[in-house]
């Protein structure tokens, strides 16, 4: 069980990446991307925790401390993840307004249709 955290991390990583690649729905792709990013949070934070360790405040009764730095780093990464997700969703809304759909294959079909029409005209 010592490697449980790593197995969970790798599972999330691969699952997220798979969803991004395999799904054509723009929202589902963003969900996959978020799962992928979440796996990174785990990758950083899990090794920073020591069993029985406390917050790194010097006190005579404690000798084992957890590393606080990964938490701070991941706080930044979470902000970045939220910003990416928000921007992705905003662009998805605009795509829905412009194309009337958020399915990748339907958008491609619309574009191909337009190209064919332009060919006929010229």
């Amino acid at each position: 069980m010592a490697h449980f955290m790593y197995i969970a991390t790798v599972f999330l990583m691969v699952a997220g990446l798979y969803i991004v690649m395999a799904r054509g729905n723009l929202i589902k792709k963003l969900i996959g991307l978020s799962i992928l990013q979440t796996s990174v949070y785990l990758l950083y934070i899990a090794p920073g925790k020591l069993l029985g360790g406390t917050a790194p405040i010097l006190a005579p009764q404690y000798t084992v401390y957890s590393n606080p730095l990964p938490h701070v780093l991941i706080l930044t990464a979470i902000v970045v993840g939220v910003a990416t997700l928000a921007l992705g969703l905003a662009i998805t809304v605009r795509i829905r307004e412009a194309y009337g759909t958020i399915e990748e294959d339907e958008i491609i079909a619309i574009e191909i249709e337009l190209l064919k029409k332009a060919d006929k005209l010229s």
Partner: peptide, 14 residues
């Protein structure tokens, strides 16, 4: 441009 930006967002974030 929107579709291009979305695609870049996904691949760039990966």
């Amino acid at each position: 441009a929107l579709a291009a930006a979305y695609r870049y967002l996904i691949m760039g974030s990966i």
